[in-house]
């Protein structure tokens, strides 16, 4: 189990990015963190990954404190961040360097097949489309079989069609080994498609506003009434987190613009 205990983060310039964030994530659960800009969601994810240290509180994974990058925790960034001097297969196998060559090659091939890029194994990253590159990044993170996979706005740079495709693909990959997923996004629809639980954060300083359980059966129908209902709940929570009531019209036609404006 992943446990965040009273995480606080104050930057050297005295900006308080996070304050008292506590969250328990069950094994195999998909938690999606949403919130307006400046609410510290990426800071939170970086603290969980061990890339940055929180100023207060601690992150526990199965009872052990995470203070630096951990082999049980995988990370997918907003950009693919593939190493341009390695082929696609080399990138996927990056975290398996210490394994025997044969095992490494087999696992890389299997993972590449799993993300549907077997035919791209020997090409350079520069030859991939944005969606393909992000799939390689997913494969690179998953091939080491992490217990927890952290994703920081992983699909935000992609077009809507590719994004929806990769969201389904991520759920498909998740079903293989059921790792714990913590996803940061500013896309409410993405949150509802993916999440078991949505954590809405509020800014200045970043803290948790509300947790919304999404117990719709998967795969989720993006057109269903239940989906729409969940979306409205999340949007309402986001509006509250930014200190404005969705129902009150303050001259900017909040209810309509809220969906588009809150980040």
């Amino acid at each position: 189990m992943l446990s965040l205990q009273h995480i606080g983060k104050t930057y050297p310039n005295n900006v308080r990015a996070l304050e008292g964030v506590s969250l328990d994530v069950e094994l195999g659960e998909i938690v999606v963190i949403v919130g307006g800009s400046g609410c510290g969601k990426s800071t939170l994810l970086r603290a969980v990954s061990g890339l940055d240290q929180p100023s207060q509180g601690r992150v526990l994974l199965d009872g052990v404190a995470v203070t630096e990058p951990n082999e049980k925790i995988g990370m997918v960034f907003q950009e693919p961040r593939l190493l341009p001097w390695l082929t696609v297969a080399g990138n996927v196998g990056f975290g398996l360097e210490h394994r025997p060559r044969q095992e490494r090659e087999e696992r890389v091939a299997a993972q590449l097949a799993r993300v549907g890029l077997s035919d791209k194994a020997s090409v350079w990253p520069r030859e991939l489309s944005g969606g393909q590159a992000q799939r390689v990044a997913l494969a690179r993170a998953l091939v080491t079989r992490p217990a927890v996979l952290l994703l920081d706005e992983p699909f935000s740079a992609l077009d809507a069609f590719t994004r929806a495709d990769l969201q389904d693909h991520l759920l498909d990959l998740w079903a293989d080994g059921k790792p714990t997923l913590v996803v940061v996004t500013h896309d409410v629809e993405e949150a509802i498609v993916l999440a078991d639980r949505i954590v809405v954060m509020r800014p200045h300083p970043g803290r948790i506003e509300e947790e919304i359980a999404v117990d719709l059966p998967r795969p989720r129908d993006r057109q269903s009434a239940a989906y729409d209902f969940a979306k409205r709940r999340v949007l309402a929570a986001l509006d509250r987190s930014l200190g404005r009531a969705a129902s009150v019209d303050d001259g900017e036609t909040k209810a309509a613009s809220g969906q588009a404006m809150w980040w």
Partner: peptide, 15 residues
Amino acid sequence: KLVEVGRAFRLSPFA
């Protein structure tokens, strides 16, 4: 960002 990838995979300074 690439150095961070190395950190995420726990590379030693030499690696």
